[in-house]
Write a protein that binds this DNA or RNA. Structure first.
Lengths: 366, 366
DNA sequence: CTGAAAGCGCTTACAG
DNA sequence: CTGAAAGCGCTTACAG
């Protein structure tokens, strides 16, 4: 505040001009230049690793940097370079943005994305969003981030126009989700269709013939829909009936899974297997089944999707479909960086892996 | 690149000067000023909500902003304002920074911190760190963030000097962890001592007399140590022996808990209860117990700490100590913002809540 | 290999 | 209530 007041008389060592170091708390490149006896431009070059600077000079600059604990001001350098060196992750929450826990699967993605960003020398800004909000603009347009990663389930049809707007604005983004033709922008996702097939085949192998599906199965939720389609495909091939009464909508939460299972049971108990579109749904379903006195897997075989950590710990342990989140995070970041550098980039479909556990093993428990 | 080349002849509508909108992709405040017929300063004022601007003018500016989809450039405004409006979260990983899952408790904290930041209108930069790295400087010094939040277990004694350096540099930070006198900077944590007491009392109430503790119990890991001290305090009061042979070091991972339990069993099986310093340790211990054919809770009562989501799903469900992560995140952010605004701020100890579940209920299972 | 200078896009005294 | 001007701390042509 009163920064320009003259130094107190006692401060007899105060100089009028040189060594203006720390005068305002933080050293600047001019302070370094002064200390190293070079120009500020040279400091900048030395720090950015330019080949144009003499080794000896570089050393002197580095010494000053160390002595003054100097760090280049990111705001200034970003402004000048017209990019930020940071990526933004928009994590969409399901309709219930309350204190409830975030879907562990996305948390896992978040971890891998963070790591991938760090590996590529970028910072990661994270933000939770609700689909209803005006998220499509903020981060990239204000130069806070060079590009954005979109993550989360949600009604695809509803937000599709926002994606299109993003494309129109020239915002660089990648999204995790179903990889379908004709989508705006670049999508990366796992092989949901194949995952659904794998689960259905496995369930049929276990002798199940009356299979139910818990989760939305419409183009509003393309990932769930793909899982459903893979599942239905196998049933059809195997000549197993697809009974519409055995499909109940659910979003990816434990409570929604619980409710869906209850709804199904209220409708009929004539089923011997349940494929839940996500592990959270499966865990809720497991509770509803147990409340009703139905045993897993003896009475009902159960499988989920995502292979969240809890899947290995529930009782019985839950059969699920593993998505390689580490790989996913890397590809997402990689792809976005490509886009930013204007290099060719395209979507990708990652393989999945069925993790068979107790909840679906009827043969073993017979 | 070749931005200053004259427009091609076919571009007959090109103007030499006015409506320079979008000339370079992104509108600036000058473009807005031009379009609204005011000065650039006025645009800035209008956008920042200054009372100094006429309503009518403000409307015109806003119209131009909407028309051009303008967003203020954060890098420029941050540079000018000399702060970034963003906070950084440094998440420390345990020694094993591999692909393994992050401790769910910290993930939960991350969620609440993110929400709290958003609520306060700040962005959140996140970064995983290893204790060994030179993390103490980067974020705040480079003006990427106005302050930092430190989160994660780790050897406190080892990184204490870094905290001190942070203080010396005038970096604003808060950390989540044990709240002890004489610590550098501000700490916020839960009442670990009380949590330990609650667990021990409960276990003794259940009739247990030979209690074991899994987790480091030294000043290197102050949180675990406090939990241990609370536990030991109750045993002492109750006249229950504290057998050093019944304490095994462990860090907060499932595998470490598994190993610790194995080590304990190898030493003796003369114990009837285990207090694990974290849920991850408890879950590992549960597996080791089960491998050895020891039943929980019939043979051994078990309790953890953190109340991660999985605690409710393991079999048997795990007794644990709940820390209010929502509140924690809010306080952390609040406190850091205070520090940044140079308002008085101090550490806090949050209450805990014992969540009794099957793993420790011996009375019920008798 | 180095330095002087322009300029990135804002915010904020300063002067009406 | 508004405008002209300075300056935040860098990076990068430009000119040696």
């Amino acid at each position: 505040m009163a920064a320009f007041a003259p130094p107190p008389a006692s401060c007899c060592l105060a100089r009028r001009f040189p060594i203006n170091v720390r005068m305002k708390g933080k050293a600047t490149s001019f302070d370094i230049a002064h200390m190293a006896g070079v120009s500020q431009s040279t400091v900048s070059r030395a720090l950015r690793g330019s080949p144009l600077v003499n080794e000896e000079t570089r050393r002197r600059v580095q010494a000053a940097v160390d002595a003054l604990n100097y760090k280049v001001d990111k705001n200034a350098s970003n402004l000048r370079k017209m990019h930020s060196g940071t990526l933004a992750l928009l994590l969409f929450e399901d309709p219930t943005p309350d204190e409830s826990h975030i879907n562990p699967f996305f948390l896992s993605m978040l971890g891998s994305i963070t790591r991938a960003c760090a590996k590529q020398g970028h910072d990661l800004l994270i933000s939770f969003q609700q689909f209803s909000h005006d998220w499509h603009a903020d981060f990239a347009d204000s130069n806070k981030a060079d590009g954005i990663i979109l993550l989360g389930y949600g009604d695809y049809l509803t937000h599709r126009d926002k994606l299109e707007k993003l494309v129109a604005q020239g915002t660089r983004f990648v999204r995790w989700g179903a990889v379908l033709p004709g989508q705006p922008g670049i999508s990366i996702g796992c092989d949901n269709f194949r995952g659904g097939q794998d689960v259905a085949s496995h369930l049929i192998d276990q002798g199940c013939r009356r299979l139910a599906f818990l989760g939305d199965a419409s183009s509003h939720y393309p990932e769930f829909f793909e899982r459903y389609r893979g599942y239905a495909d196998v049933l059809r091939e195997a000549g197993v009936a697809i009974d519409p009464a055995l499909q109940v909508n659910a979003e990816s939460t434990e409570s929604s899974g619980y409710a869906a299972m209850q709804a199904l049971i209220a409708r009929t108990t004539d089923f011997d297997a349940v494929f839940a579109a996500s592990d959270l749904i499966a865990i809720g379903a497991m509770r509803a089944l147990s409340d009703r006195g139905l045993r897993v897997p003896q009475d009902v075989a159960l499988a989920g999707f995502d292979d969240i950590p809890t899947a290995s710990f529930v009782n019985p342990t839950l059969t699920s479909v593993l998505q390689d989140t580490n790989r996913a995070g890397e590809i997402l970041v990689d792809c976005l960086l490509r886009l930013i550098r204007k290099e060719p980039a395209e979507g990708a479909v990652l393989p999945v892996k069925l993790m068979v556990r107790e909840s679906s093993l009827r043969s073993a428990s017979r």
